[in-house]
Design a protein around this nucleic acid. Structure first.
Lengths: 79, 79
DNA sequence: ATAGATTTGTTCGTATGTATA
DNA sequence: GTATACATACGAACAAATCTA
């Protein structure tokens, strides 16, 4: 598996936007197939070493963009 | 007596103080009854079109004044 | 059937950086 | 230089929905 993209806290771009871009790329390149669940918020926190709120903000953006949807108690899945 | 309902960013008075006055008035006139929750910080941000920090500062003042108390994960309620 | 674990969703608390007046 | 205001970021608590043992 290729090396994961990494968050740059010192970049000008907000962390939550960087994470949005990373996840969007994974979806658009079908690294996460349609209908598949994304990693949980807690997992994403650990993977990218960002906070709870930052992950939620990134996922909310993807949902607003219509790339994913979410179900409480289940997770986020690719549309 | 005129009652302020909107924030005037061009007024001399700080926005957070204007918001404090608005909320204090709503509490003292029992528009928000005892024990009731105030609108959330996020809601107040949207309602008055001010930032997160500004709402928090106003609420902190009301709490310091003993008009409200707060519970993390729940909200601010009228004393 | 119910108890526990996991997950999303919402909330407050604190801190930092940037811009502006 | 100080105070205000906004945006970002992290942290934590609470609740409800879901799944499973």
């Amino acid at each position: 598996m290729p090396r994961q993209q990494v968050i740059d806290h010192d970049a000008g771009e907000p962390v939550w936007l960087q994470l949005t871009a990373i996840l969007r790329h994974q979806i658009e390149t079908a690294q996460i197939g349609r209908g598949k669940l994304l990693p949980s918020i807690r997992t994403l926190m650990q993977t990218y070493e960002v906070s709870d709120g930052t992950v939620k903000r990134a996922l909310a953006q993807l949902k607003a963009d219509g790339l994913v949807d979410s179900v409480p108690g289940r997770g986020y899945f690719v549309l």
